[in-house]
Structures are given as structure tokens and as C-alpha cells.
Design a protein around this nucleic acid. Sequence first.
DNA 1: GGGGATTCCCCGT
DNA 2: TTCCAACGGGGAATCCCC
Length: 669
Amino acid sequence: MAKSETDVDTARPWQSYHTVYTNAKAGMDGVDKEKVQRIVYQMSKGSSYFKNEERKEADIREKIDNMRARLAKLTAADLSHYQMVADKRISELEATRDLSRIWLHVDMDAFYAAVETLSNPSLKGKPMAVGSLSMLSTANYEARKFGVRAAMPGFIARKLCPKLIIVPTDFKKYNHYGDLTRKVFQKYDPNFLAASLDEAYLDTTEVCKERSITGEEIAEEIRACVYEETSLTCSAGVAPNRLLAKVCSDINKPNGQFVLPNNLLAVMTFISSLPVRKIGGIGKVTEHVLRDAFGINTCEEMLQKASYICALFSHSTADFFLSVGLGLGRTDTPEVRLRKSISNERTFSATSDEMFLYHKLEDLAEMLSTDMQKEGLCGRTLTLKLKTASFEVRNRAVTLPKYICSTEDILKHASKLLKAELPVSLRLIGLRVSHFNEDRKGAPLDSTQKTLINFIVSGDASRKVMDNHSDPCVKNDDETSLSIGTHETCSFNDRDTLNCSLSLKLDDSNFTFSNDAGQMEKFQKTVNENVDETKSEVTQLLGADFSPPVEGNCLERMKSEIKLLEGEAASSNQREPFLWVNDYKCSICGIELPPNFVDERQEHSDFHLAQKLQEEESGTELRTSTPRPRVVQKDPIASQGKRKKQKLSPKEGKHIPIDQFFTRSNQNF
DNA sequence: GGGGATTCCCCGT
DNA sequence: TTCCAACGGGGAATCCCC
């Protein structure tokens, strides 16, 4: 009797550890897959990475179980219905089939490794990979014989192949050779599509027609030409569409080619036994789902199980799977595609040191801003990517009313997103900007963007005074009209703090406001209007008994604050709140903030100032506790657990407790 | 209900 | 000795506002 799957799992636990490393890849025939899998398992077992992989595996299994349960519930009538839907869709897709084009997919062989060998011939014939001990970008064919491959950590690769030479990446070199190959492609198809540095799709239909040559001949010619120009080999696939051409280029790798004739029988025969995993877009997870939930292993089986596919997947996903079953792919010449986003990310040793994390964020913001300005991009959605010490990936995004590209703007908003996650131990931080402006000339679309002082003086009534983020150094007032602004205010969960935020609002123009009497008068009018507006908003929020303690002579308050900040009261003790010991430690409460974290330090100073003003006004010590700097001390409720949006259940009714409001707002940053 | 925003997931090099 | 990347595109689920 055959051993059960569980028995096998117990005896060889590595067999259930699904990595991509044992997937069939060019040059990996004859590799002892079991040995590779065992070593990868042994090297990984017990690590945070491994635990996270197990968690992901469990999620996929759950997803598969759900799908199987849904499939089991389908009645005969349902299946008959979905079969009709599938049949209709299949004939519609079939009607789009175009066998007239001759597409070529060219793929350089172990590109980075080949380039490195070219510049250092002593590497020839030796197992070698490009990358680092953390991660390999590619491996040459000698290394692949040991099971070493791209996307494998170097330290595992070394275990598989102790003599492996690891060469660091050098994109300058790869770009140079990439350019040379592209010059060749250009000659055959001026509109060729570069899929990456080392891959391209060419529509050779016209050139074949003009010269009365076949796809096979043109592929040979192009490969020879690439070799002549670069001394590097490449492989090619020729087929009636790009999807198939890509599959074909992998068949006779390295330094080979495969031609799929432009006729229906050839295509359908080719596709009939093709494993789904060979199709671009079907990766480890989708392969797993198709196999375990639907029993689909080959492309042909997509058509056999078409009714199930239509029953469980969305239209677009079902269309994709059915197209794969028919061997259909794109045959049109792709239009110029504009970049959709720009990002950067860095991995480091896991840490919860907030100073370190903010510094990293600052570096990333600066790099991203530089990259954006090089390309003349401005975007309005900023996404912060985090990877925790346990490899959990989180994305937090904010969409702004204005386009940004400066380091200051990126850092300002990224900091807010990061703050909402603290405390946390991270091993990666990334920033991404998307939703670009359409002109893409570098300048923000809104050229009328006001400085803070202009804004206040002009008395823009739309401004939300609830915003407690006063930042005289940054000339962007965008967050004020953003929900995020009000949410952030509500991250404070007591009324004292709300009062404080109102006081702080009055600090907005401290640094830039002139002493001109007319301006002062105008300013006070605006401030008073804003206070009234805010008072009404806050009253609505907290109830009629709320009375902010900031009424009174705002002009006098402003004057005294300006004096304080300009140093006119330098001799008095009033300057004390603005002293930062060693540029990062507050002398009042001892809180530490990175020196370059200007916004937060300013905000913190403002806090002490507001506290002092309140004390002066009431004549009593309102608070004896230390302030609640948002950077370090966070609402423990808001920062704990998952940040998934929480929908209130009907049971919870329409009345949202005020605490809940504050907590939730912070979470939904 | 439609559409934008947010988050997560999947995939590729 | 070392201990799992850096991007970028796109789909889908969910939530929220209009």
C-alpha cells in the first residue's frame, strides 16, 4: 500500500516546503531536485522568513479550500449555466484569433552573468552568480547545474555549490550591453517592445514579408547580429503572438530558438500539453490554485474546466485563463506605455530604533525626489511600504490634493504614515509615488500653490483649522484640505489635546509674519474667523458644552509668540522650551527626536509653547504631565493590532463612541 | 450603485 | 563569518463618499 501524503511529509518535510527554486528553468535539467529542496529547507527552517512562508502557504491552502467548497456547492443547473457562458466567451475569444503576425521574443542567456564573464574571462567555465549573499540576480549555467538560480539567497546557493563565485551587480555594464542589443532590435522592428534590460518582443511580420524570409531565418539572423555586436548569446522564440513567443524562447535555451508555425493545428497541439506554469503571468500561487482547486495542470485543461473557471473567477481573470487554453496572446503593436509609478525601497537589519527608521525614510525620500525630478514626475499618491521583522508586508498610502515631488513633501507625508505604525520592528522601508500629473514636466500642476503665510493672510475659508500640524518651514498647505489632516488631529484622544491643537493653530505664521500693522489686523480677522469655524466644528463633534480656551486677543497672543520665537525674550526663561540638547533632545521633557526631523521638533516645541500659553492664560498649572509627542508616544489602542479598516457592525449602531472615533481615525490614516 | 482610495496579493525580471 | 532584493505593473476585495 502506498504511503499517505502525511507520512511522506513527516519523513521528508522539505517536500512540502514549496519554493520557486525547484521549478523547471533553463539549464536546470539533471539537477537533483530533492537534494536542492532538502538543503533549501534545512537552511531556511525556523527562520522568520520560513515562518512567514508557512503563513503564506496556509493562506493559499485556505483560499483553495474555499474555492473547492464553492465548487462543491454548484448545482447541475449552475454548471449548465456557466458552461453556456464559457462556450460563448470561448467563441468570442476564438473570433479574435490572428495568425498573421510573426512575433519574436528574444531573451539574453544568463545576461548579467554573461556580461560579467565577458569583462572577466577568468570566470568562464566556473560556477558563478551575480548578486550578494542576501540575494542572487542570476546564475550562469555551470552554477545552475548545482541548483543555484536567480532569486535565491547567496548563502543558500553557497551551500548548494561551495565553489560558487558571487560577483556584485554592475548595472552600468548591463545597461551598456542592453543598449547594444536594442540597437540591433531597432533595425528589425523600430517599435519593438523592451520587456526588460535583456528581453524584447519584435513584430517581424513586415521585415519577413519584405525580404521573403521565414520567422526561423529572421530569428537566426537577429541572434547572430546580437552576438556580433555584443559577443553575448541569446535565445529566441517565434510564434503568432507574444504570449506564445515568450514560451518558445525558453524551449531551446541557451543559445537556441524554437519556431511555432502560424497555423491553428500547430498552436493547439503545442498548447495541449503545455504546463500552465510555463505561461507568463501564472506563477507559483496560481499554479497551486489551478492544480489543487480545479485539477488543471495543462493549458488544454483550462478549456475542459471552462465552466468552473467562469463560475469562480472574475471576467478578466476567466478571459485570461480561457485565452491561455486557446493559445491566444497579444498580437498588436503595443502603444507607448507611460510609467505608472516610481519607487525605491531598502532592506536593512531589523530594528525598532525610531531614529534609525526616520533617517532611512529621509534617505529614501531624498533618493525618490531626485529620481522623480530626473524624470520630471510629480505624483499625488504616496505609498509607504514596510516589511516587519517577521517579513509581514504592509502598505500605507495617502492621496493628496496636490502633486508632490520634493524631498520635503515626500518626507512630510511619509513620516505621518510611518508614525501611525510605530512602534514596530522593521527590516525594509519603501516609498512609492503614483498618480502622476499628465503634463509630466516636473512642475506641480498647481502653480498657484500658496505659502502658509499667503494662505493665512488671504483668508482661505476652506482651510480646516482642526489641522494641528503647523509647519512654517514647508510651503505646502495641502494636508489641510485632506481628510488625513482631521484624522491626524483626532489621533489625540482627550480634550486637552484638542484644545492644544487649536492653540497650536495660531502658531502657523510665527516665523514669517511681518510686523506690518495692516497685515496683522487682516491676519487677526482671519484667525478669529477660523477659530469660530473650528469652534463650531468641534462643538458638533464633542457636544455643546465644549468651549475652547483660545478665545480672546489673538493679536496679543501672536505678538507674544513672535517675540518668543524671534528671541526677543532671550533673557527670560521663556526661551527654554525651544532648546534642543545636542540637537535632538528636548530639555523640557527629555524626548528625543532626530535632528533633521524638523517638522516633528517644531511641532514639539509648539506643544510646549501652547502649554505655556494656556498656563499663562488660566493662571494655573493645567497639566503637570509630560506632553504627548506623537512621534514617540502613541495612542496604544491606535497602534496595536491589525490596521485593517473596521466596519461597524449593525449592532454597534449609528452612535460611535468618541474614543472609537479617535482611535479609528488614527488607524485609517 | 458607481467610482475613487486603500490594501493586499500575484507576477515578472 | 555571511542568513531571503529592488523594483514596477496589474487585479481584486473592501471601504467610503456622493
